[in-house]
Amino acid sequence: MKHLLSIADLSREEILEILDTAVSMHEVQHRDVKKLPTLRGRTIINFFFEDSTRTRSSFEIAGKWLSADTINLTGKGTSVSKGESLRDTVKTIDAMGVDMMIVRHMASGAPAQIAQWTRCSIVNAGDGTHEHPSQALLDAYTMRQRLGDLEGRHVALVGDLTHSRVFRSNVLCLTTLGAKVTLVAPATLMPAGIGPWAAREGLEISHDLDAVLPTVDAVMMLRVQRERMSGGYFPTAREYAVTYGLTKDRLGLLPDHAVICHPGPMNRGLEISGDAADAAQSLVLDQVSAGVAVRMSILYHLLSGEGSAA
């Protein structure tokens, strides 16, 4: 494994290996000395062309806890804003001899393109509406902590599927792990042409959240991306909350053992009510905590082992 660009590149065994290692990494989080010497001397650049709190900070913490040197670059305040091309920026950083770039970019496919231009390892930290593999891995990790093996489990992904890279990575990750996935969204927020893909992957499609909730083991509420909501996808936020939000009333429809996930940041009162976000079944903060452990595991798998980038 040299790059992490898409969950589609990972086998079931590789996913499980990353998740199992993350369990041990999680233990380090509770130590007084949160430091392992594993990636000493390695340099990791966090290259974020889009805003991020949890992904960027957890990748940075993960790198630091493994003793790598981590540096943050954003689109703003770099030569990108002076008009330098992406290729030249990447080549420049590559020439400094870094070992890994963790890339978030608004264009789908940018990390895969960057991987062609450099010899360092590339981690896709979210590209456009394509994928967000580390998020899917930490979601699977969090669900496994609570539910055990995901084989045969039923997970509903609810909300703005059109714009969600989290949803795309999660479908690939969950189905590879043997879970049954149901997609719930208003027709306007279902990606165009999803039918044949859903049929091939064995995904259920529903527009009725109330009918799906009683059958799930986990429900993942996806953020309504206000910054991409210029196209009139639903009449009002209020109507969306009533038909597709995880409201206090809908909490009662969930089976007792079922868990609630949200990749964050949450729009409380829109796709998820405060009651649901703070319920005992909510794993929102567990997801954040798992984020560091899973990302440590990703960095370890990409930057150690025979023939890892020098």
Partner: peptide, 15 residues
């Protein structure tokens, strides 16, 4: 595992 001195010359080991 994380403290080994041969992590870069061996296949990735499970922790």
């Amino acid at each position: 595992t994380m403290y080994r001195d041969d992590l870069r010359s061996q296949p990735v080991r499970a922790m």
